[in-house]
Design a protein around this nucleic acid. Structure first.
Lengths: 235, 235
DNA sequence: TATATTTGTTAGACTCATCTAACTTTTGTA
DNA sequence: TACAAAAGTTAGATGAGTCTAACAAATATA
């Protein structure tokens, strides 16, 4: 489907507001308007067009959600933006704080061949100059989680986002503790001698070993709220 | 001055129609419409806007001419187009026949810093992949003329476009023969023994030496008519 | 030179993305 | 729960760039 420059911007914004965050899945008219720097009335008009094109799920007074097709387009624009930013810094010698505006223009260039070749020319980078993940050609964003449950301090809350060990025995163990992706974990205490962690998940308290905690990727509370993270949870 | 994507296209087209040719200096409404793929009525509306912005000289039913400001903008777009084409071929491995459409988009990216850096990255190329001259940062197009008056065959017509020798004595000699830039020269005959050429300029017949003819750059009749040149007169 | 053909212009309409101002629905809280 | 605040919607307008259809001027040619 051929999208206008403007439609692409709406889809990119929606992707950032609803997908590129661990919690939120829907956006509102005012929120989107603020993000794009236009008035809510303008957004409202565009929402009707995007719905007609089956790029968003949306009902009057309801929340806005990307469809599969809409997400595909949105993530593609984000991918292009970040690849161009990388090009500008790595190949042309721009400073990392100078590239955003130019990339806002470059991200709308229509040519899949160009993006393939640019990606190759840059040797398939995984992160842009700001450290944000660059979606791959399939639109997948492989976030490199770095913070484990064992990095948490007693008293902190975090959310499980991935596992390091994908073996069946480990996964079964995880389930038995009542844990799963997106579960919030409260770290109660850490035993100084054997590093046994006491954690609370959905009201249930369990003890887990250091080895277990090493294999659970988590994100901190800032990440959970969509704020800037100081720990670098997302790589 | 900030120009729209569309205005830039009109100025680029006008530059190509009126400047990037040795003879023509003005364009018509229909001609411009055909070049841009829009209707004459559309062009007519835009001409008024471009005139208001002092980018063209234009009177009702008259011919269209770029002003200095208009020419500056037009040549800048052309420069960007050709630099991007060069980038696509040289750095990304595109074939020379695949780059035009993408460059049509890229030429409108607004960032003088980007173009400076791209130019440097490409090592200040003088010609694009199609062999067309790339205007430099000042908008100058240094056409590398290759064909001299001495390359002409008796009976051919050509037009003087430049001199190789810029010394005052030579230039004075040129003037004495009645020659000047843009004069049409008809080659009447060549003496087989000493290569003396008999030429006719504005009705006046003169004889000039091989040495003289070697220092006069000319373009062939195809070039004069704006057609594709087979001799490579323009380098 | 008269007229046919080409070239250029005008008027009026359409789409897209945007706005303001007024209105309606939903939500949060006293 | 009632009502105020927040969020969302509608109607009507604007400007850019485009179109078609009809008209006017310039030019080429018989």
């Amino acid at each position: 489907m051929v999208l206008s420059y403007t439609e692409e911007n709406y889809l990119k914004a929606l992707f950032q507001l609803t997908r590129e965050t661990l919690e939120k899945k829907e956006a509102g008219t005012n929120e989107l308007a603020a993000h794009l720097g236009v008035k809510p009335a303008t957004v409202n008009d565009m929402l009707k067009k995007l719905k007609d094109k089956k790029l968003i799920d949306y009902e009057k007074y309801g929340k806005i959600k990307l469809t599969k097709a809409g997400e595909k387009s949105g993530v593609e624009v984000l991918r292009k933006h970040r690849l161009w930013e990388t090009f500008l810094c790595v190949k042309l010698g721009f400073a990392w704080d100078e590239v955003h505006e130019v990339a806002e223009q470059l991200e709308h260039i229509q040519s899949s061949k160009l993006i393939e070749k640019l990606d190759k020319f840059l040797d398939y980078p995984e992160f842009d100059p700001h450290g944000d993940v660059i979606p791959n050609a399939k639109g997948e964003m492989k976030i490199k989680y770095k913070v484990c449950l064992s990095d948490m301090t007693p008293g902190e809350r975090c959310m499980m986002v991935a596992v390091k060990d994908n073996s069946a025995p480990f996964l079964q163990y995880v389930i038995s503790v009542g844990l799963g992706i997106n579960n919030v974990i409260k770290v109660i205490s850490r035993n100084a001698y054997d590093e046994l962690l006491q954690i609370e998940v959905e009201g249930k308290v369990s003890s887990v070993s250091r080895k277990f905690a090493d294999n659970i990727f988590v994100v901190c509370q800032d990440c959970m709220k969509g704020k800037k993270c100081k720990k670098g949870c997302k790589g």
